[in-house]
Amino acid sequence: MSWILGALVFWGAAWALNAWLANSPYRGRRGTKIAVPLIFGLAVLVVWEGLVRGFGVSGVILPPPSVIWARIVLSVDILWVDFVQTFVKGALAGYLIGCAAALAVAVVIDRSPFLQQGLLPVGNFVAALPIVGIAPIMVMWFGFDWQSKAAVVVVMVFFPVLVNTVAGLAATDAMQRDLMKTYSASYVQTLVKLRLPAAMPFVFNGLKISTTLALIGAIVAEFFGSPIRGMGFRISTSVGQLALDMVWAEIAVAAVAGTAFYGVVAAVEKVVTFWHPSQRS
C-alpha cells in the first residue's frame, strides 16, 4: 500500500513542480526545457516501480525498472554483442548505403525533368507501401547474417530520402539560379554551391525519418531468421523463456540507440543547416 501511495504522491508532486516550472518566468530557459521532460520521465518510472511493487505484479508480466536496470548491468556483454549485430552491422550499414544511393540517384534524376516526373509519383507511392514485407525475401536472397538485414534497411530508407532530396533540389528559386548564371557558374558549381546546400533541410528531413525506419527494418528482418545474436533474436527467444527483464533490457538499449541515432543526425543537421530559419530562433 505504501508503495502505491508513495508513487501517487510522487506523481502529484512531480506534476505540480512541472506545472510551476512551465508557467514560471524560467520557462524559456534551456535548463527548464530539458528538466521538465526529465522530471516527467522520472515520475513515470517511479509510478511504474511503485505500482508494480504495490500490486505485487508478477515479474513474468511486468518487471519493475530496478530489476530491469539490474539485468542491464549484469548482461552488458550480451547486450553489446546484440547491439553490434543489429545496430552497427544491420541498421547502420544499411542506412549509410541506402542514403548514399538515394542521394546519388536524386542528383542524377534531377538532371532530367522526364525522369523526375516519372520517378517522383512512383517513389511517393512506394514510400507509402509496407516495405518491411520484403524482409523474408531479403533473408532468402542474402542469408541469415547481417547482410540481409542491411539489404532490408537499404530499401526501406531509400525512398523517403530520395523523395525528400528531389523535392529539396527543386527548392531554389529562379532568382538564385539566375544569379549563379550571371556568375557563369557551371552545372557542378551551381549544384555544390547553391542547390545542394539549399536542399539540405529537406534531405535531413528524410534522413531523420529514416533513422527509425532503419532500426525497425533491422529488427523485423531478424524475425525471419538470424544467427544466435541480435536484438530481434534475443527479444523473441527471451519472450519464449518468459525472461521479461531481458526483453525490457533489450528494449531499453534499442530505445537509447534509436534516440541517440536520431539525436546525432539532428545535431549534424543543426551544423549543416545553421542558416535555416527553423534552426536560428
Binding site: 533513422t211 527509425t212 532500426l215 525497425i216 529488427i219 523485423v220 524475425f223 536484438m231 530481434g232 527479444i235 523473441s236 519472450v239 526483453v247 533489450e250 528494449i251 534499442a254 530505445a255 534509436g258 534516440t259 541515432f261 536520431y262
Partner: peptide
Amino acid sequence: TVPIVAIAP
C-alpha cells in the same frame, strides 16, 4: 525512435 517492433512480441 523506439523501434516498436522490438516491443511487439
